[in-house]
Structures are given as structure tokens and as C-alpha cells.
Amino acid sequence: MPSLTGLLIGGVLPGLIALALLGLPRLSGHQRIVALSALLAPLFVALAFLPAPIVVNGKHDLWPLNAAERAIAIALAAGALGAVGRALARKGHAPAIAAIGSGAFAALAVLIALHPHAVSTGLLVGVCAAAGLWTSLAAVTLARAEAARPGLSTPLMLALTLFAASLVMLFSAIGTFAQQVGALVAITTSVALISLWKRVPVLGVSGYGVVLSILAYFVVGAWQLSRNPAIGALAIVVLLPVAIPFLVRFGATRTRRIASWIAIMAGCLGAIAWGYSIYSDALQAAPAW
């Protein structure tokens, strides 16, 4: 079981760092500082996430042999690509293209370690392409939904989805993944607080791209590396981020907003329940450890 120090550093610290890096510049009131903070948002998300893999895995190698311990590289690559994409945002679709790259790289980091003995070239290429497209399109639609309806809804719905994803990782018997996705929950919860406070989009396409790239890494990792992955629950976790923008836009009236929140919570509970069913099957024997 994780120690209290581990939980604080790996789980709470990422949220506090995100709150400080993304929130404090907005306190200054200077437009240039706020603009610079927005430009660097992808890097800030990556930096906020870093304590989690360092504490959870007990090491800080950039590219370890163990494909399950490559989250540091994923976060840094996604943060750097996201910042470049954001800097070039005026020249077309640079943030979306950067998110394709970081999402594909996230899947590649897992699959390349299993290729060719357990993963074929076709599967590797197909999943990397799908992960890249999924990351980009989810990031774009989340950012647009947040721009259309600034506030709590988009980041908090994503935080709920990530919480469900964390439990699904746990039910796939990968505690280290669950803890690290927990750090993403803390980060997106901080983003939600800032959004509630300022009523402006905080992450943008590039920021969401970082969060989703890291999630893509853990989803592909749980699917490919777990001995007994909760496939159905993971599929729901994949579908929810692309459903959130529709739910946010759908919630134009109070009644519709309530329906949207019920829908996202139902999706999350569905994923958790599906994951737990596999977990409880595995625990038919005596309690482990």
C-alpha cells in the first residue's frame, strides 16, 4: 500500500503545483503574464504531473526498460509538443497536430516494448494512429466546449472521468497506474477550481492534449500490460472524454445541465462497476497480500 508521504507527494502535490502554476499568474492581473501562463500551460501540466511517477515508481529515468514506467517521458514530450503547438497556434492547426503526435507517442511508448513478440506491426501502427487521433480530437472538442461554456463543467467532468479511470487501473491490478492517474485527477480538479473562479478556459487544446496523452499512455498500458485488463471499462474510459464536449454543450438549460451531469456520472459509474466485476472475480481466492 502507498505510504502517506507517497500519497501526499504523488497525489496532492501535483494538484497544488497545477493550482500555483496555472492560477497564480491570473492573480497578477497583468495581461502579458496571463498570456505567458496560457502559452506555458501544457508545460505547467507536465511539470505538475512529474512528482507522481517519480514517487510511485521510485525512480526518475527518462526512458526505463520497463514500459510501465515511462510516464515521465510521456509528460515531458506532451508538454513540450503542446507548448510548441500553442506557440504556433496562429498558424493553422498546430495544437491539434501536436496533440496527435503526443498521443501517438504515448501509445508507442508501451507498444514498442512488446513489438514484435507480443504486438504485431499492424496493431502497433493502428493503435498509435488511433491514440493520436483520439487525443487530438478529444482535446480540440474539450477546449471548444470549454470556450463555448466557460466554467466548472468541462474540467470537472474530465476529472470525474479520470477518477473512474484511476479505479479501473486499480481493478486491472496495476496500483502504480491508478496512483499516477490519481495525480491527473488532482491536476484537473485544480483546473476546475481556477475555471470556476475566473470563468475562462485554462488549458486550451494543448493543455488538454497533455492530460489526454498521459491518460492514453495508461489506458494502452493497462490494456497491453495487465494480465487481466478490464477491457470494457477501459473502452468506456476512452469514450467518455469525447462525450464530455457534447454533454457540456447540451447543458444549455438547468434541466439539461442536470441531465448532462447524470449522464457523465452514469458513464463513470458504469466503468467503475465493469472494472470492479473483473476485480472481484480475481479476488475469489483469499485476499492478496
Partner: peptide, 14 residues
């Protein structure tokens, strides 16, 4: 495009 992408990844998982 979103729907196709999500379904591709989800069905790929399965």
C-alpha cells in the same frame, strides 16, 4: 471524425 476515432480505439481495445 471524433466518433470514428473513439470507436476505432475502443474496438481496437476489444
Amino acid at each position: 471524425a471524433i466518433a470514428i476515432s473513439a470507436l476505432t480505439l475502443a474496438s481496437g481495445l476489444a
